[in-house]
Design a protein around this nucleic acid. Structure first.
Length: 312
DNA sequence: AAGTCTGTCAACCGCAATAAA
DNA sequence: GTTTATTGCGGTTGACAGACT
């Protein structure tokens, strides 16, 4: 036996939201927070499906949305993130505070695609339009990548003063087919009060002339102590620079730490593409990590931004 | 002025993963 | 362990506005 239905589809409105509906939704979430979308419509007095409410809130009503035109910097960041991640709009949105996946997806389809084409680049592969070599980002084409691509990620985590070392090694194709999930989450990378991790990772992708050799080296943030004190500090800014960088043949990453319980904060498993993620509710209560990492408070290192990945 | 085309973006749809009964 | 609902994501659609003919 499963659960009862989420809503009576016969009695739900569809199409554009009215101001009254918006206000009801805003009022309800302000009062009760995000949470059970299934029961929300009824509780808020809305004749909408929970799914529709969630979408309306996330894409339009959320108070932290930036809206307005995209800046040139955002354009370039989207292009570079897309070259790395493909059509993973939610991942890309996670690196653009105040922007939603839907917004970025629309923007990509209406503006950036054209921009790239005008530069003589294929929007999917980010290679010259007359190039015959296919070198798509993960997920961009739906094609399975070659078997010999391999991620090799020794990760050293350090909490307080006691370092732990874990390793995981999964084939690129496994990651691609989403088979790698719990391994990365359950491999002891976190302690219960895991704060900022120390990660020394080496990512190798070897494929003919497309070798990528990513060496990560992230030191403990000077911020770590402040985070533990959980006072209003730079923790509240949402991003802490670890002062490290990742250099590769393609460019360099800037590495940041970001609290899980901030909008856009995600667990390592998710950031490396091993796990789907949850969302962060309006109270900032952490659902920004994967199911295996749920309940683990604190901070995780993420690739929050990168610079000059493909050069210009 | 009217009809058509094009661009934009909010909303919907279908699917996969996950959670709950 | 199985079934079914929920959640989240990416792709697609359709309404609307402005440009063009």
């Amino acid at each position: 036996m499963g659960r009862s239905p989420c809503c009576e589809k016969a009695h739900t409105n569809k199409g554009a939201w009215t101001k009254e509906e918006d206000q009801r939704l805003i009022d309800y979430i302000r009062l009760h927070g995000e949470g059970c979308w299934r029961s929300l419509p009824k509780a808020a007095g809305l004749l909408r499906c929970g799914k529709s409410c969630r979408l309306r809130w996330i894409n339009y009503l959320r108070p932290d949305l930036k809206r307005g035109n995209f800046t040139e910097e955002e354009d370039e960041l989207i292009i570079k993130l897309h070259s790395l991640l493909g059509n993973k709009w939610s991942l890309i949105a996670g690196r653009l505070p105040g922007r939603t996946d839907n917004e970025i997806k629309n923007y990509w389809n209406t503006h950036i695609k054209r921009k790239l084409i005008s530069r003589g680049l294929d929007p999917q592969t980010h290679r010259a339009l007359n190039s015959t070599t296919v070198n798509s980002p993960i997920g961009a084409t739906g094609k399975k990548p070659p078997e010999n691509l391999e991620f090799n990620l020794p990760v050293i985590t350090q909490y307080a003063t006691v370092p732990q070392t874990i390793e995981f090694k999964k084939s690129y194709s496994d990651m691609y087919s989403n088979k790698v999930k719990s391994d990365s989450c359950n491999s002891g990378t976190t302690t219960d009060d895991g704060q900022i991790g120390r990660i020394l990772s080496r990512v190798q992708i070897s494929k003919e002339d497309h070798d990528i050799d990513l060496e990560l080296s992230i030191g403990l943030s000077k911020f770590q102590g402040e985070a533990r004190n959980s006072t209003a500090s730079s923790a509240e800014s949402g991003v802490m620079n670890l002062g490290s960088s990742l250099n590769s043949g393609l460019g360099s990453f800037e590495l940041f730490n970001q609290p899980i319980n901030k909008v856009g904060g995600t667990c390592m498993c998710y950031d490396l593409g091993f796990q789907s993620k949850g969302t962060t509710n309006m109270n900032g209560e952490g659902q920004g990590n994967c199911s295996k990492c749920q309940g683990k408070s604190g901070y995780v290192p993420i690739f929050s931004r990168y610079i000059g990945l493909l050069g210009s």
